[in-house]
Amino acid sequence: MIRITHLEKVYRTDEVETVALNKLTIEVKEGEFVAIMGPSGCGKSTLLNILGLLDDPDSGSFMFNGIEVAKFNERKRADLRKRNIGFVFQSFNLIDELTVFENVELPLIYTGVKAAERKKRVEAVLDKMQIMHRRNHYPQQLSGGQQQRVAVARAVVNNPKLILADEPTGNLDSSNGNEVMQLLTDLNEQGTTIIMVTHSEHDARYSHRIIRMLDGQTVLENIMV
């Protein structure tokens, strides 16, 4: 599903040049659950951004579902992104001014789904995440675990092929964290590809494979059994 080859990304300021990704090559197959680990500044977030089509590489190849997307412009990337990729963030990133229902509904609005259909799909996914009873609450009225479940609901409501999770349990206590990991595992078992950046060895154990990074390169891959 994803094949990146010799991917490079360099950040430049006036005085310093920081190599975030250094000729990185990774492949992720459809249906895989991959964890990416590594110390701060190793390039995992940059990688996730590029995988999520939020940022573009300086050089190298990025095949997404067999299409070269490295040179896509912003509009094309946005289009591909909203149909194929869901995001889950450490800090949930829900819009404070929108209710739970409205937050989850948002991606459907941008892909042009009709109102009646939206209602059906949002309710289905809220049901699945067991937060239907909170549908009219605002994010700040929910606990951290509940907020992350809303965020996951929003990520999956469009039935994306790929979910990118950036430290999804980082702001949660262990029981809420486990719940979210279980959600992701369930989604993966239903066929969604998941790539997750994490610091937590515990969380990483939910995945099929761990890619360890250092200084913009992969240094080790563990296959989980």
Binding site: E74, A78, N93, D96
Partner: peptide
């Protein structure tokens, strides 16, 4: 900013 960021992530184009 958060609102804008999220909207972009879930698929809003610049025009929108």
């Amino acid at each position: 900013l958060k609102e804008i960021g999220i909207k972009k992530v879930v698929g809003a184009g610049r025009k929108q």
